[in-house]
Amino acid sequence: MSERGDNRFDGFGRAEAFDEKSEQLLHAYHDGELQGRALRRFERRLESSPALTKELELLRSMGDVARELDSAVATPDLWDPIALRLPAEDARKTQEREQSARGWLSWLTGVDGRMALARPLGAVAVAAVAALAVARWWAVPEPSFAQGGVVRWMDSGGRNVMVLEDDGASGTTVIWLLDGGSAEGASLGGSNDVA
């Protein structure tokens, strides 16, 4: 099924042709990327196109679902059951997974994965969001680090961390959260600049 020239149904059951350009403009509008004349022109199109408006609402609702899932991740009550599955999902792997998903979508649809968002498949999409979340929890990390270091992934919540990787001789890896406080580093004469 091709995305280009796809027939969409407006709220009254009338089919309206969407072209690729419209899809792109819709996403750009949704992402706040349209400005100036292009923005005003598209807003006029939205006013006159119930189908476009419906698609926009769908995009927004899916964004809400995704945000709700993300906020659910941070809920303390959920943290214990999922425990340490979160570290398996670093940003790089998530990005790779999303790229992979886009690749699949492209393979399946012949279009960029992002455009599939516009499809009016609300319930399916919600299920897919949930499925993605489940997959994220269950994924087992195994990045293909060629150098084979001990630390494969880390999240320090934005704080600086010093990692002293073992070269095989010492048999030790040090992961040091830098807080600028006492008892560490060159500020006190240690061998490492941890300020």
């Binding site: 995704a66 993300d70 940003a91 649809t109 994965g113 499809r119 999409a125 897919a128 969001v129």
Partner: peptide, 12 residues
């Protein structure tokens, strides 16, 4: 941070 979920329509 959790990357935004996109491209979901046909995931199912």
């Amino acid at each position: 941070g959790v990357t935004g979920v996109r491209g979901l329509g046909l995931l199912a």
